Amino acid sequence: MENKFNCLICSEELEYFDESKEMDCYFCKKKFSANASCKSGHYVCDSCHSLGAFEIIREYCLKSNSINPMEMALDLMKHPSVKMHGPEHHYLVPAVLVTAYLNSIGDRTNLEKLLNEGEKRAKNVLGGFCGFYGACGAAVGTGIYISLILGASPLSEEKWGLSNLITAKALEKIASFGGPRCCKRDTFLALETAVDFTKEKLNVQLKKKENLKCNYSKINDQCLKDRCKFHKE
């Protein structure tokens, strides 16, 4: 969540060691000699602590072996650069989906290339796209995902259709909850749609996080509360 104190991951108080310990960074997974962590053992290196949203999304995905895009998204949302709302979610969606897909099929050869291209495309989806253009950026992110993994272009046939179809399905699901926008809700809905779509159309099984409950209601003035399926009482 935003405005975290102490641990970036769980907000617990930090503990300082008399002697440095070797620890893995929560985000980049690299090993560091560290002199502090929270009581739960979370450690974030100085580099990841200071990275911007697009950078931390890319770096995290490059190190992740997960096939659960929703859990990956929840992890990334803990980083302070990923705000309550913002266009970084337009990249977060295709990034975690591409990563989970390539991990699932066991071929990460083009991961960095696809993440870089996905970032370029996502940056063309402006903030406020949902209300001003009638196309939520999280849903567009699912279309970017399918386009990237299938190599679709404006001249493609079936691949073109699938890229547009997943966006349409994600938009329909997001629209069914009505407004105002919530980048967390819309991201979760887009990812749920993409996991189902990937299994149905590509026969690749990604994992879902069942019974996901959102922890961001208190910092979202426009939260739908009990009208949102992810609302936590």
Rank of each mutant, 00 (worst) to 15 (best):
L115E: 00
F129I: 05
V98H: 02
G141A: 09
N124H: 11
L92Q: 00
V140A: 15
L114T: 04
Y145E: 01
A95N: 04
T99W: 01
G137C: 12
M84S: 08
G86D: 09
L111C: 09
I144W: 00
N124L: 15
L115W: 02
K120S: 13
E119S: 10
L114W: 01
G86L: 03
H89R: 01
G131T: 00
R108A: 04
I105A: 08
Y101T: 00
S104E: 12
G86V: 01
P94Q: 06
Y101H: 11
H85L: 10
T142N: 09
N103D: 05
E112P: 02
G128I: 02
G131E: 14
V98G: 04
P94S: 10
D107N: 15
D107V: 12
Y145C: 10
Y91T: 07
I149H: 00
G118M: 02
A95R: 02
Y101M: 12
I105M: 09
N110S: 13
C136L: 11
C130V: 05
H90Y: 11
G128F: 08
T142R: 05
D107S: 14
L102E: 00
N116E: 15
E88Y: 01
G127P: 08
V93L: 06
H89P: 07
G134I: 12
N110I: 04
I149R: 00
L114S: 09
F129V: 07
A152N: 05
L126V: 15
D107I: 11
I146F: 08
G106N: 12
L126W: 08
V93H: 00
N110E: 15
F132V: 13
T99H: 03
L97Q: 04
L97Y: 07
V93M: 05
N110L: 13
A100W: 07
E117W: 05
I144S: 02
L102A: 01
H85W: 06
E119T: 10
G143I: 11
R121N: 09
G143D: 08
F129E: 12
Y101I: 01
L126N: 07
G134A: 12
V96S: 01
D107T: 12
V96C: 03
A135Y: 07
H90K: 01
G151Y: 03
E88S: 15
I146E: 00
G127Y: 09
N124K: 14
V96Q: 01
A152Q: 01
K113G: 03
D107E: 12
V125P: 03
I146Y: 04
T99D: 06
V125R: 00
V93D: 09
G127E: 11
L102N: 02
L148Q: 13
L114R: 06
N103S: 08
Y145N: 06
C136T: 02
L148A: 12
Y101C: 10
L92K: 00
G134Y: 11
L111Q: 12
L111E: 01
L102G: 00
F129R: 10
N103R: 11
E119V: 14
G151D: 07
E119N: 14
E117Q: 14
Y101W: 12
I146W: 04
L150P: 05
E88T: 03
N116W: 03
T109I: 07
N116V: 14
G128K: 08
K113R: 15
G86Q: 10
G127N: 07
L150H: 03
I105S: 11
G127S: 14
P87Q: 12
V125L: 14
G86S: 10
T142F: 07
G127C: 10
S104A: 15
L97W: 07
A138F: 04
L150A: 05
